[in-house]
Amino acid sequence: MTAPQHGAPTSADRRRWTRYLVDERAEARVYRQLAERKSGAERAILLALAEAEGRHERHWLELLGGEPARLPRPGLGTRLLGWMARRFGSIFVLALAQNAEARSPYDAERFASPAMRADEKIHAEVVRGLAAQGRRRLSGSFRAAVFGANDGLVSNLALVMGIGATGVAPQFVLFSGIAGLLAGALSMGAGEFVSVRSQRELLAATEPNDYADDVLPDLDLDANELALVYRARGLSDEEATLQAHRVVAAAQGSGERAPLRDAATASDDVVGSAFGAAVSSFLLFSSGAIVPVLPWLFGLSGVAAVVLALALVGVALLCTGAMVGLLSGGPPLRRALRQLAIGFGAAAVTYLLGLAFGVSLG
């Protein structure tokens, strides 16, 4: 793979090629490290991506005329990918790799071949497909975690800001924050328990049961309502009749119960444990709600407590927002700032209300 000739390269060109060389090597290493933890199709795809990065590496080596005497360190983003590939799950690494592949420097690089530019764009789609599988597996629990922690952060920050703005004693602000933490966490836990239990009960009422199994041997193969059961479950007339004949014939031939529940699905496998969901929601909300209370918990008061609470919650909101952006494939900084604006906006509203009530009470 050789780039079109564009005249004699400058020293700046050679430095840029060297940077591309080390980044391509580091990216290939990341894909190979991820492949070591995978099997089957995912492993093969990751190794193929590593091989493609190897082709790009050879392109820059050819332009450089061989291995340079001195090589710079890979870029910060590439080093971060390598560090995460060694320590964390592939979903985080693939999400970062997707963003990196989508920002290929080769679009503006005159020494990169058209095939290399095309490779990088296709790589972004390949990595997007691999990351999508992990995102789908993570989506339910991740949504609950982000929602619970973020709800605790925002609601309790808004509460302590509003109460603190009225001018009450620091002990009252602390008590209000703890009360808000417990009230919110208990409400989240109870709501999740009721929600999951209700969903399980709804699914249990929907699933087939063994109520009619013992009468199956007595049904008439030519005139029976068993076909209606399968039609009610969504089969066509022909499919329902064939299934009914198979079930009745099996029951009459063996004298045992027929598998009338073959379409059943256990509700526990679908929605999980109601108690586990309640405990998770309680802990996730509490982990966020405790953050704005920490300054008062450690004895601070007044402006110092307010500033520290805002700083702590701000960092937490930026982290959760950046993680949402990272895992969703969006810009982490934009998602982080959006999360921060929403949280501080809610706190500002209650703070202004607290000031208004404080003036009126005074």
Rank of each mutant, 00 (worst) to 15 (best):
residue 21 L to V: 03
residue 22 V to I: 14
residue 22 V to N: 04
residue 23 D to A: 08
residue 23 D to Y: 03
residue 24 E to H: 02
residue 24 E to V: 02
residue 25 R to W: 02
residue 26 A to S: 09
residue 26 A to T: 05
residue 26 A to H: 06
residue 26 A to P: 01
residue 27 E to A: 11
residue 27 E to M: 09
residue 28 A to H: 00
residue 28 A to C: 05
residue 28 A to R: 00
residue 29 R to W: 00
residue 29 R to Y: 01
residue 29 R to V: 06
residue 30 V to G: 01
residue 30 V to W: 00
residue 32 R to S: 08
residue 32 R to P: 00
residue 33 Q to M: 10
residue 33 Q to T: 14
residue 34 L to A: 01
residue 35 A to M: 08
residue 35 A to V: 07
residue 36 E to R: 14
residue 36 E to S: 13
residue 36 E to D: 12
residue 36 E to Y: 05
residue 36 E to G: 06
residue 36 E to V: 14
residue 37 R to M: 09
residue 39 S to M: 06
residue 40 G to F: 06
residue 40 G to V: 07
residue 42 E to L: 03
residue 43 R to P: 00
residue 44 A to P: 01
residue 45 I to M: 08
residue 47 L to R: 03
residue 48 A to F: 02
residue 50 A to M: 10
residue 51 E to W: 09
residue 52 A to T: 06
residue 54 G to W: 06
residue 54 G to F: 07
residue 55 R to K: 07
residue 55 R to G: 02
residue 56 H to N: 05
residue 56 H to C: 07
residue 56 H to G: 02
residue 56 H to W: 03
residue 58 R to M: 14
residue 58 R to F: 11
residue 59 H to E: 06
residue 59 H to N: 04
residue 62 E to T: 11
residue 62 E to Q: 15
residue 63 L to R: 11
residue 63 L to G: 15
residue 64 L to W: 09
residue 64 L to A: 12
residue 65 G to N: 12
residue 65 G to Q: 13
residue 66 G to C: 13
residue 66 G to S: 14
residue 67 E to N: 11
residue 67 E to I: 12
residue 68 P to Y: 12
residue 68 P to W: 11
residue 69 A to C: 12
residue 69 A to N: 13
residue 70 R to C: 14
residue 70 R to Y: 15
residue 70 R to T: 15
residue 71 L to K: 07
residue 71 L to C: 10
residue 72 P to N: 09
residue 72 P to M: 14
residue 72 P to A: 11
residue 72 P to F: 11
residue 73 R to V: 14
residue 73 R to S: 14
residue 74 P to R: 09
residue 74 P to F: 04
residue 75 G to P: 04
residue 75 G to K: 07
residue 75 G to C: 05
residue 75 G to E: 11
residue 75 G to A: 10
residue 76 L to Y: 10
residue 76 L to P: 11
residue 77 G to L: 05
residue 77 G to V: 03
